[in-house]
Design a protein around this nucleic acid. Structure first.
Length: 844
DNA sequence: GCAAGGTC
């Protein structure tokens, strides 16, 4: 019997599709990577009995990257990134997806690809094919088609079964897949080249940038551009005076009404005065017409991701990435449907009634739901069907107490939106009374609620039911009690809200429903924008200077149209109208030239930086001596912390996220740089290091970023050979090395992994002896205590021996794993005042 | 240490 191997884009879809195709008679098991399940059943394929086996990937199997040697920022010129080779690597190493697929596909005869029906999905088809090609059976007849692409537009029985019909199965579309390869390559080369160049250029010049990375990207940069554009509009705004005419009239019942002038506002005082004078010639206003019209506020369309993110931000004060993380969890727990969808239309066979019935006993909205069920569902409005996933709807009922605050509010919104979309529109009577005073026209408008409709459940949209329409008919006169001019001033626009930024991204095709929150997060975390009250995005100095710099050098770099222009080129590949190679070569050529131009004109951006930031030479505090000039170098504490020698104008990278201090006056015997101590907190790793060797490893075989505990110097008293104790018990290549600067809380730490031994607390001296333990071969350790501090047997002040085998020493040793303190900056008393927006935190 | 795109 033949076996058909089938692959979907995510585990949940593999399950749904399997259930449909097997008529719910299937056997399921978890795959070895813990993420994907495998579903098996028997059926018919191409008119013969067959075994079916279905599993999924988790998004992309592979990712595009540079070969390892191009990832050294100090050696590789970013310009090389336009021509150097690129390679595909496993997207998520721990899932071992290619291996998983090849194992499961072993011995199968046919492959049916059920990846999402978009270009990314098409690309993943080829990643899957590449993974299983060598392990599947080869057909006896070489010309027989064994790889099929299923095309589906909804996860419904009807659609899925139709897609599986023999005549519906097609071949995967290589052109579409190649267009994604091209996109990946362009994004990688362009993004990384600009990011590396500007990061290195500005970080080596300014001390107070407070950003580890000054990134550029075809999506994140235009997104920042929107925020800065609004910032500029606010800063350059010039208020303008204007005048409005305010006419008040008295009714018979002594009530007075304010009439709205048809001309709205006038920007010329004299002209406004002229109109006022004309009006003042009259003491009555005549009712010209009274027109009532039934109007409606439409019920919402079915909910998609972008709309959910906008509402979460603007109405609930929950940022898009937090909102999506919450939605993701609600989905996994089965409370809502798949939350990443562009579709705003329920499919024909969507069980609206069933989904509604689930909510009929709800404490808060059960009674409304029961009313709808008894009156009948109002068929929702047709929205856009992107053919990806159904709209976001509740799948299970949940009460308020079952969730935390924010998850509840997201669930509540999704559910109320769903219910609202099945109710009637909100209907109201809009009455306009038009008046004439001489040649000028005025009016009043009043609304009277006829049917609350969906605003009964989406009550934040409800209308005021109490607006009274004055009892007037055409021909009536009302007495003018006052007519005057009011002087006003135009006001600047406000900063963009997150919801508006999402709207702009959507409009310009920047990012996708899944990546929009990531881009917004990026520009906040990189310190280009801060989230202010009302979730408005206010660009920081750094953000403003960057965008102005791009505008000065090459405004294309920040234009929102750039992304869509490139995508148009890519679509030519997808449509088979252009060659992959020629489009890629052409586009890369353009950007390589833009990059060169940017590099040679970076001075233009630098001029702006100079105004806002202080040079490295003015930053930091003196710490330790330079081995080249013997003068003091400064510790620059803003991220990334580094050492700067003002005399040599050299910068040295330091270990991050921890304290750096001098190690007395000790120097490295190789380069005379003063030695330093890194400490990652009380329970963290610590080691002695030479700032020069840390950046430029002195011996072959040493890696960059290491301390003296990994140094191969044969005789240096701080090196591995003198202070090493034994092999690490937990990692193969690691060596346990004494940290000579750690007293009185003495530590021996592995120079590779997180193993730490605490020993002989409060001892005055701990040394590594030249002799070794006869039992285990470890170096012996010597310890000395001061009078009264001894922990040794009988209060002895000195002893030496093996810390693992000696019955007196071993009990004074504790093994732990280093923990990392979750801090920015160090200690207290620093870092307070410059609060930074963190994007995903805080609620409006 | 970098992009953007999938997804857990």
């Amino acid at each position: 019997m033949k076996t058909v191997f089938m692959v979907a884009e995510k585990p949940s879809l593999a399950q749904s599709i399997s259930e449909i195709l097997s008529d719910r008679r299937l056997h399921s098991r978890k795959g070895f990577n813990g993420a994907c399940s495998v579903h098996e059943w028997s059926g018919i394929f191409q008119h013969s009995p067959a075994r079916y086996k279905m599993t999924s990937v988790c998004g992309h199997v592979l990712t595009t990257d540079f070969p390892g040697k191009y990832n050294n920022w100090d050696i590789v010129d970013p310009a090389e990134l336009y021509t150097c080779p690129i390679e595909k690597k496993e997207a998520t190493a721990k899932l071992r997806m290619p291996y998983f697929l090849s194992q499961e596909a072993r011995g199968c005869d046919y492959l049916v690809l059920w990846l999402d029906c978009d270009k990314e999905g098409e690309n993943i088809c080829f990643e899957v094919m590449g993974s299983v090609a060598s392990s599947m059976n080869r057909p006896a007849n070489k010309s027989e088609q064994t790889v099929f692409r299923a095309k589906f537009s909804a996860i419904t029985d009807k659609d899925i079964k139709a897609a599986m019909q023999e005549q519906a199965l097609v071949e995967p579309n290589e052109n579409e897949s190649r267009s994604v390869d091209a996109r990946q390559e362009l994004d990688l080369r362009i993004g990384c080249s600009f990011t590396r160049f500007q990061t290195k250029f500005f970080q080596n010049k300014y001390g107070n940038l407070d950003s580890t990375l000054i990134s550029y990207g075809p999506c994140q940069t235009p997104t920042l551009g929107f925020c800065v554009e609004r910032h500029d509009a606010i800063k350059s705004f010039k208020p303008e005076a204007y005048w409005v005419m305010q006419v008040t009239a008295g009714l018979k019942n002594d009530k007075s009404i304010r009439l709205d002038w048809e001309r709205g506002r006038i920007f010329d005082r004299e002209v406004a005065q002229l109109f006022l004078n004309m009006v003042k010639e009259h003491n009555k206003a005549k009712v010209v017409s009274v027109i009532s019209k039934e109007k409606c506020k439409p019920r919402p369309q079915a909910l998609n991701t972008v709309e959910l993110m906008k509402v979460a931000s603007s109405a609930l004060g929950i940022g898009p990435s937090t909102a999506m993380a919450i939605a993701e969890r609600l989905y996994i727990q089965g409370y809502i449907s798949y939350p990443r969808t562009e579709t705003t239309s329920y499919s024909e066979n969507f069980d609206l009634k069933g989904a509604l019935q689930l909510q009929s006993s709800h404490h808060d909205w059960g009674s409304t739901v029961r009313e709808i069920l008894s009156e009948g569902i109002n068929r929702p409005k047709k929205g856009h069907d992107a053919g990806d996933h159904p709209p976001i709807t509740p799948m299970r009922m949940a009460e308020r107490h079952m969730f935390d605050h924010d998850p509840w509010r997201i669930y509540e919104y999704i559910t109320k939106h769903f219910i609202g979309s099945l109710m009637r529109d909100c209907a109201y009577l809009s009455t306009v009374v038009t008046f004439s005073i001489g040649s000028e026209t005025f009016s009043i408008t009043a609304h009277a609620l006829l049917d609350a409709g969906f605003t009964k459940i989406m009550d934040w949209l409800a209308m005021d039911p109490d607006e009274k329409v004055p009892d007037l008919v055409a021909g009536d006169d009302v007495l003018i009690t006052e007519a005057r001019l009011a002087e006003r001033e135009t006001v600047p626009p406000d900063y963009l809200t997150e919801a508006q930024v999402i709207g702009l991204m959507e409009k310009h095709g920047i990012g996708t429903d899944a990546s929009i929150p990531v881009h917004i997060n990026n520009i906040c975390q990189r310190n280009y924008c801060a989230v202010a009250s009302g979730r408005r995005l206010i660009p920081t100095n750094l953000g403003v200077v960057l965008v102005h710099g791009y505008q000065k050098i090459d405004s294309d770099l920040v234009l929102p149209t750039m992304r869509s222009a490139v995508e148009q080129q890519l679509n030519l590949i997808a449509a088979g109208k252009a060659e992959f190679d020629s489009v890629l070569r052409h586009t890369l050529q353009i950007f390589a030239a833009k990059f060169q131009y940017f590099v040679s004109n970076i001075g233009g951006m630098d001029n702006l930086f100079e105004v806002s930031f202080s040079p490295l030479s003015d930053s930091g505090k003196p710490l330790s001596r330079c081995g080249k000039c013997r003068r003091y170098m400064k510790l620059v504490e803003t991220k990334p912390q580094r050492l700067y020698c003002p005399a040599c104008d050299d910068t040295y990278t330091l270990p991050q996220n921890g304290m750096i201090r001098e190690y007395q006056e000790n120097k490295c015997p190789l380069d005379e740089f003063q030695l330093l101590v890194y400490s990652g907190g009380t329970r963290g790793k610590s080691f002695v290091f030479c700032p020069y060797c840390f950046n430029f490893p002195p011996f072959p075989g040493m890696v960059k970023g290491g301390g003296c505990n990994g140094c191969l110097h044969p005789t240096c008293q701080y090196g591995r050979d003198q202070l090493g104790v034994s092999q690490c018990m937990e990692c193969q290549p690691g060596i346990l090395v004494l940290d000579p600067a750690s007293g009185p809380k003495w530590k021996i730490g592995c120079n590779r992994c997180d193993v730490i031994l605490y020993l002989f607390e409060k001892a005055s001296k701990v040394t590594v002896k030249t002799s070794t333990c006869t039992e285990c071969g470890s170096q012996n350790i010597g310890v000395e205590y001061r009078e009264g501090k001894s922990k040794l047997r009988d209060g002895a002040l000195t002893e030496s021996g093996c810390i693992f085998c000696s019955v007196t020493l071993a009990p004074l040793v504790t093994k732990v794993r280093a923990t990392y303190e979750n801090t920015r900056g160090r200690g207290r008393g620093r870092g307070g005042p410059r609060g930074r927006g963190r994007g995903t935190r805080g609620r409006g």
